[in-house]
């Protein structure tokens, strides 16, 4: 039975499941590195998902759906940026407001645009896998190719995009002017201010980047996984992403790898549900798995992970 579970598509599925978490987690990384907590990722992702579905349904183009999701994510994150940076609100409270707002706005627009709550029609043009290679045949070589093909070459565009984002963000954070300044902002914003770095602007940019990535995560859910929008479909992924960011020690590649762990748990629980007949465990327990894993990971890692020193603290000039 183990052979039936540990198949190439389990790992491929782990990569797919990890993608929205990873995008949001990297968003969280950039945002927290600049000194702003982003509890709002859940809501940003949800609104991104809705925008992807709505634009996809309206235009028939998956790519326009993705663009709309990014735009919506940026727009929502701007609210968080304004309230956290300019109004100096409590960042966790502001994020919570956005999460509630996202539930309200998406539900409201569902009824306004489609006349019913619940789930939208299927988006006609989903984003398709980039490559189309046949699987290998018999024999060792064939098997190896089948594994490689499903794990590496079976994916949709945003899955690859997420990997690229992780690598580029990591490089940029440690090699570029922007990255050095970002790291300074979250640790000691006043030090950054005294050498002429604009703290508000730096934080605004980071928050909006996290909005773009959160929107992209939502687009992935709708356009590459589910195929339609359902109310509250993010189901806590924004919070799991934050845990992944912590587990990844506030680095983009770390966030991606941590998301892979959660993605694998998700893929595994889906796979195991197929074997319900053989393993007599109710499906709800499988569904709990990612959430339990999140708590376990946080319990195991936190003491040793050090967050940016100034995260969550509004910057006061002068």
């Amino acid at each position: 039975m183990l052979g039936d579970i540990l198949t190439p598509d389990l790992f491929a599925s782990a990569l797919r499941m990890a993608t929205p978490l990873a995008l949001a987690a990297i968003g969280g990384t950039l945002c927290e590195r600049s000194g702003v907590v982003n509890i709002a990722l859940e809501g940003i992702m949800l609104i991104g998902a809705f925008a992807a579905a709505a634009a996809g349904l309206a235009t028939g183009s998956g790519w326009l759906g993705l663009l709309a999701a990014i735009a919506a994510g940026v727009a929502v994150s701007a609210i968080h940026a304004f309230s956290s940076i300019n109004l100096k609100s409590d960042q966790v409270v502001s994020g919570t407001a956005i999460n509630i707002l996202a539930l309200g706005v998406t539900g409201f627009l569902m009824e306004l645009l489609y006349g019913h709550p619940g789930t939208t029609d299927p988006v006609p043009q989903m984003l398709r896998p980039v490559f189309h290679f046949p699987n290998g045949g018999e024999g060792v070589l064939g098997t190896v190719w089948t594994w490689i093909n499903s794990i590496v070459f079976s994916h949709t565009p945003i899955v690859y995009l997420a990997i690229a984002v992780a690598v580029i963000a990591q490089w940029a954070m440690y090699r570029t002017r922007w990255g050095l300044r970002l790291r300074a902002l979250g640790e000691h914003p006043r030090a950054a201010d005294t050498v002429g770095i604009n703290v508000s602007r730096g934080r605004w940019i980071a928050v909006m980047m996290s909005g773009a990535l959160g929107g992209m995560a939502g687009a992935n859910l709708v356009l590459e996984q589910v195929g339609s929008f359902t109310e509250n479909m993010t189901n806590g992924r924004g919070f799991i992403a934050l845990a992944a960011n912590i587990f990844g020690r506030w680095t983009p590649v770390g966030s991606y790898l941590a998301s892979l762990l959660f993605g694998f748990a998700d893929a595994l629980q889906i796979k195991l549900q197929l074997f319900r007949a053989e393993i007599d465990i109710p499906p709800q327990f499988f569904l709990m798995l990612p959430y339990v894993l999140t708590v376990v990971v946080l319990a195991g890692v936190i003491g040793r992970a050090v967050s940016p020193a100034a995260v969550g603290v509004p910057y006061e000039k002068g």
Binding site: S83, K88, S89, D90, V93, G107, F108
Partner: peptide, 22 residues
């Protein structure tokens, strides 16, 4: 009017109160 408007109003209240504490 969709009932969800209530959630929106709720969220706005939270925003305003969070900002007011400043």
């Amino acid at each position: 009017v969709p009932q969800k408007i209530i959630s929106i109003i709720q969220a706005v209240v939270i925003f305003l109160i969070a900002a007011e504490s400043v």
